[in-house]
């Protein structure tokens, strides 16, 4: 991967690494680990990480738990509404291999086939320490300009798109009841 950055980008990446706003997509039980991470015990805010209300404002999409075909569609929609540079954190083993529901017809087993995942947090579920550790790793990656998932998504959009359609199917009628 091309790792050369201009000075401006270096400054920008430094800023981005120290101010991470996350949108947590609470698809599963993983979200329960976030409150302790944010509150007094572990205090995520000291790294400049905080929750944000909408994908427009957020930098990180936190996919907390297993995905079904129904939720994946919305994850992708939310991800596309976010503004670059944007990062996805797959949270818990469900996003890696489908977790305990891996054999269900509706479960998505691998998140990174559909959207570029910058960081996986393994565990069922990961403890707050693991989350903080993971975020530290993500910050380092951003700082060094290595968290380039959003660029991958743009570059390999055709491939991602194909995977998405394979999993979700084409939607022909566009209204509130069919998508």
């Amino acid at each position: 991967m091309n790792n050369e950055q201009t000075a401006w980008e270096r400054v920008a990446n430094m800023l981005r690494a120290r101010s991470l706003w996350m949108l947590y997509y609470c698809t599963g039980c993983g979200a329960i680990e976030l409150p302790p991470t944010m509150t007094a015990r572990f205090d995520m805010e000291r790294f400049g990480i905080g929750p944000m209300a909408t994908p427009r404002q957020a930098d990180i999409l936190l996919v907390t738990g297993y995905l079904s075909t129904k939720t994946l569609r919305r994850v992708i929609y939310s991800y596309e509404q976010m503004q670059a540079p944007k990062y996805i954190v797959g949270f818990g083993s469900c996003t890696i291999n489908g977790g305990i529901y891996y054999d269900s017809y509706a479960t998505i087993n691998r998140l990174d086939l559909y959207v570029p995942v910058d960081l996986y947090l393994a565990g069922c579920m990961p403890r707050p320490e693991a989350i903080v550790n993971g975020f530290k790793n993500l910050m380092d990656k951003i700082d060094q300009g290595e968290a380039t998932g959003w660029k991958d998504y743009e570059a390999n959009y055709e491939w991602y798109r194909k995977n998405q359609i394979d999993a979700l199917g084409e939607v022909y009628i566009h209204d509130e009841f069919h998508e």
Binding site: Y25, P55, R74, V75, Y77, S78, H174, E176
Partner: peptide, 15 residues
């Protein structure tokens, strides 16, 4: 119409 909808899809502008 490309608007934050909490992940829902939107096609009817009146809504």
């Amino acid at each position: 119409m490309d608007n934050y909808t909490a992940g829902d899809f939107l096609y009817t502008s009146e809504l």
